[in-house]
Design a protein around this nucleic acid. Structure first.
Lengths: 336, 336
DNA sequence: CTGAAAGCGCTTACAG
DNA sequence: CTGAAAGCGCTTACAG
């Protein structure tokens, strides 16, 4: 910038004004633009944000459970669609569900001066973010609400989606509905379990007698555990699978035992090719891109100075019927 | 930092040394640490990188075709695994295959002082990056090599994978092998087409007589076009599908016509649930996480000062047999 | 409308 | 080992 000023024969202030669209005489502006062209000058935005009064860096940080998970990549895309037009650039990193790793990431992001953060919270206490927020950091949680901090959040209707899925199975004659759970300490997993339980209770079904499986490592042990359940004495007539990776393994397990047309299945989260499998997968579809868009919009509102009370937005889910959830229990089962 | 110095009763330089691990008297260091604790001081990394001699910001930029595509999100994860330990934070954005958008993103990233860039190049001329590189920007291309610039790159063995896929179909008796292409101006699409053509030629099959389809919009028109092909007079006995979204539509089209056990299919790129579909999908699997890891390693080498000649690494693909590629043509077809 | 000066939060020779 | 001073590239009152 100094070089540009020298070549154009004007002051630094004038160059700054030209670059930032301030009021400058047309002739001077011309000379400055020429100098910029000749020198191939590029403004340094980090220096600019360091000095400017609002401190804005036009960068955002996304802290996801795993950037490699298609659910979060769709969410990422939703955020990008909203903030791109406003000139924001987006950092993204994975907490891997580890509170220490999450905090490390967050601090690394704030140390680099991000204007806002969109976080999929781990089970950590997020009180440590209060100080950052008090000095102007915009903060929105997504997919799960945070703990011990009052903040904007956008979540799927986990309870409602699970409730609808289980009620759908009940409507098709099932009472012995097995639950394929996720790590119960994760908010979404707990909510979906609550939806399952409430639907059973609403129809007078006792959950205690029903088989339940909680894979600890999703893709790794979900198949084995589902196989064991399907081979057991008290095999359920239907399964409700509460997470996408687990649903995939459940489909594999059913196919492996040739039970895909015998045992009904509804999965939480839609999955690629779920319509090409036979029977097609009946699924509770989330809209991750919409979660991302809404989170980004809430964030922009805060960045624009909104002091409104905190909001938690819930994105509806959609039950897609494709066959696996419409299988009926064997006739004998209907009698008991 | 000034406040810390005041509270600890030392100079700014000393605080800086403590924070950066310089040589400081133990007693003074104690006082500084206490002051940091009391004030809740957090270093400002952007100010730091502005002033330090190496200018390092410990940030990287990823410019992908689409951050929402699972292929790139797996690649992203691969990059993260490698650079996380070195304290780098990663920006990510989508070019959407638009050269102007790509350039905008790149300039937005360099203006924010990223140390390096990993780019999935569009068809643009990447000469504009030479100047950035000459002032120290590390640069690696991934998934496709760049044009008009000599640079490090990591790509899949697109030609070899396609060649193997088509040869596999030929070995199972097929000669009328239809090609489901992608936009031909994309490097990977062109390479896969070349592999298809070379395999045919090596076995004395004339490509000109074979049906070919080039969906322009992948998910949107691939199904229709494949349906039209399968309904036509010269229906092929086998399909080679050269991109994952297109493969998904091809599977849907085959199922829709009930031809999934009649017409063979090999897809480039593996797809979720491809083992649960009947017949299972025979696929050329890429390893996007490995592409990401290798790209990140090349980038770190450059950041560590390597002046070695430019390298292009090729990651092998793997043909996974699951049934759809092992279907044989109808008997009559074998005669001609 | 323009320029000289101060300063954002930090690092780095330099002299002690 | 420590501190005073200069300066990274920029913006912003302030006076003209």
């Amino acid at each position: 910038m100094r070089d540009v000023a020298a070549v154009a024969g004007v002051s630094l202030s004038t160059v700054s004004r030209v670059v930032n669209g301030g009021l400058v005489d047309a002739g001077m502006a011309r000379r400055v633009h020429d100098a910029i062209e000749v020198l191939g000058y590029r403004p340094n935005l980090t220096a600019s944000s360091l000095r400017r009064s609002d401190r804005a860096s036009r960068t955002l940080g996304l802290v996801f459970e795993d950037v490699g998970n298609p659910f979060f990549s769709a969410l990422h895309r939703g955020v990008e669609e909203v903030v791109r037009g406003r000139g924001f650039l987006t950092f993204a990193g994975s907490s891997d569900e580890d509170p220490a790793r999450e905090r490390e990431l967050v601090e690394s992001l704030t140390a680099r001066g991000v204007d806002g953060l969109i976080v999929t919270p781990t089970t950590a206490d997020h009180g440590y973010l209060l100080r950052d927020r008090s000095v102007g950091l915009a903060l929105v949680f997504v997919d799960r609400p945070p703990r011990f901090i009052d903040a904007d959040a956008v979540v799927s209707d986990n309870h409602g989606g699970a409730y609808a899925a289980v009620e759908h199975l009940i409507a098709h004659g099932h009472r012995r509905i097995g639950f394929l759970g996720d790590r119960p300490e994760v908010y979404t997993a707990a909510e979906r379990h609550r939806g399952y339980r409430d639907a059973l209770a609403a129809h007078g079904i006792d959950e205690d007698g029903l088989p339940r499986v909680h894979p600890r490592h999703r893709a790794e042990d979900a198949r084995e555990r589902t196989l064991a359940l399907l081979r057991s004495e008290d095999r359920p007539t239907a399964l409700f699978s509460s997470q996408n990776l687990i649903t995939i393994e459940a489909i594999r397990a059913l196919h492996e035992l040739g039970l895909e047309h015998e045992v009904a299945l509804v999965g939480f989260d839609d999955v690629t090719l779920s319509d090409a499998v036979r029977p097609g997968l009946t699924a509770v579809a989330q809209d991750p891109a919409e979660l991302g868009r809404l989170a980004a919009e809430l964030l922009l509102e805060r960045l624009d100075g909104s002091r409104d009370p905190t909001r938690v937005l819930t994105v509806p889910t959609r039950l897609i019927l494709r066959g696996s959830g419409e299988l009926r229990p064997p006739a004998a089962e209907n009698d008991f």
